[in-house]
């Protein structure tokens, strides 16, 4: 671990990292609410995260007849917790909470867990709308997950390591996004996928009355929805060490650059949500397998050829 130049921060910093993560999610909610309000021709939206959270905290919990309550709640709370697990391996400049040899695989493990979490949230409610929503997400997962995995492999090939710290170190001078743009884009598609965000939100869409969200109320809804935003933030933040050179940049300290880059990626993802229509799973399945997957495999091939010939 030390050869990557990362400094393992004291575990006490976990609290700070958690607050930072929540703050970024707060920014994302605000941005989305302000953009929505502006598009409808009204002002406001600036206090949206506060008032929405207050509303849900005040609301009474609710369970449906013969619901699978345990699994249902596990799904919602799991979404909230999962994002924190990703953030633990994201370096802020030189500092990181944990830099395991297999940081990228760890990220992959957590993002696959989302399959179960979203599906459980849909299943547990014992309601047809949410059940359909839960299965819609699985169908999406089948299509976005493999391209995402191959996109994650590209930086690992270039760095010759699955450790996030090593990947950052390997980008000294040239960011990976420059010579693996396809992997970067496919990675962002994956991030929107596991955040059930924007085009990948048919599982929560209006046509099935909110799908997975249809029966969620009060704090259960709050943790699930917050979890989605937290995953969006964690996904955006993980793209920084993976493709955007980590903390490298002039003037500002490393950790500040990580924040700036994260917010930039996050803003793009939030902004795109309003522009891109829903990508229904039955339409996306072919795209995922026949376009994204071959494209990112070719990207991996190019990366490994460059590495082998250059190294």
């Amino acid at each position: 671990m030390p050869e990557s130049g990362m400094v393992i921060a004291a575990v006490g910093w976990a609290g700070v990292a958690g607050i930072l993560l929540c703050a970024l999610a707060y920014v994302a909610v605000t941005l989305d609410a302000v953009l929505s309000a502006r598009q409808l021709g009204v002002r406001g939206g600036w206090t949206a995260p506060l008032s929405r959270a207050a509303r849900l905290l005040r609301q009474r919990q609710r369970t449906t007849v013969a619901a699978d309550t345990l699994l249902w709640r596990v799904g919602g709370a799991g979404m909230f917790i999962g994002a924190f697990l990703i953030v633990a391996v994201i370096p802020m400049g030189r500092w990181v909470l944990a830099d395991p040899d297999v940081g990228i695989v760890w990220f992959n493990v957590v993002d696959v867990m989302v399959w179960a979490l979203v599906w459980l949230t849909g299943w547990g409610a014992n309601s047809t709308h949410s059940l359909v929503g839960g299965y819609r997400f699985l169908a999406h997962g089948l299509a976005y997950e493999l391209p995402l995995m191959f996109a994650l492999v590209a930086p690992a090939i270039a760095a010759g390591s699955l450790g996030v710290g090593d990947v950052v170190a390997a980008q000294d001078g040239l960011w990976f996004v420059v010579w693996m743009p396809v992997a970067f884009l496919v990675y962002l598609v994956g991030v929107t996928g596991f955040s059930v965000w924007g085009p990948f939100a048919p599982a929560l869409a209006a046509d099935i009355a909110g799908g997975v969200l249809a029966e969620l109320s009060a704090v259960d809804r709050l943790v699930f929805q917050a979890g989605r935003y937290l995953f969006l933030v964690a996904g955006a933040a993980f793209s920084v060490p993976l493709f955007l050179g980590g903390g490298s940049g002039p003037v500002l300290p490393g950790w500040a650059w990580v924040l700036v880059k994260t917010v930039a990626v996050l803003a793009v993802l939030v902004w795109l949500r309003r522009k891109v229509p829903l990508v229904r799973p039955d339409r996306f399945m072919e795209i995922g397998w026949m376009v994204l997957l071959p494209a990112v495999v070719v990207q991996d091939l190019l990366v490994s050829l460059i590495v082998v010939s250059g190294g």
């Binding site: 958690g18 909470l97 395991p100």
Partner: peptide, 16 residues
């Protein structure tokens, strides 16, 4: 490794 455990604890605490 402890970092991940600490982070998980923070998350569980937040949910609680």
């Amino acid at each position: 490794m402890y970092g991940i455990v600490a982070m998980a604890l923070v998350a569980v605490f937040a949910v609680a």
